[in-house]
């Protein structure tokens, strides 16, 4: 079973995985953690806005939109 690591922003709609690590620092990291994006959390990409950015993710049962540059700082492992 191979595991690949991709930034959350590259997860296709309907794709899911678990948070491997956060590359964000400081305040953004705190925000992401508070949203429930701790290591091991399951995340699913739900949809993209008409312009492709932001994208909405299922994070612990809430649908939350993140901009690409923020979602880029979340690494996801997919098996």
């Amino acid at each position: 079973m191979s595991v690949s690591i991709v930034p959350l922003s590259q997860l296709p709609n309907g794709g899911s995985g678990r948070v491997a690590s956060l590359t964000a620092q400081g305040l953004i990291r705190r925000h992401l953690l508070d949203l429930g994006l701790v290591t091991g959390s399951w995340v699913e990409a739900i949809r993209r806005s008409p312009a492709g950015d932001p994208a909405a993710f299922n994070i612990r049962g809430a649908i939350i939109a993140l901009r690409n540059e923020d979602a880029n700082q979340i690494l996801i492992s997919i098996d």
Binding site: I28, H31, L35, P54, A62, I63, I64, A65, R67, D70
Partner: peptide, 10 residues
């Protein structure tokens, strides 16, 4: 520059 943005779609 733009700051951190999150928005819940309830």
């Amino acid at each position: 520059v733009p700051s951190f943005f999150t928005l819940e779609l309830p």
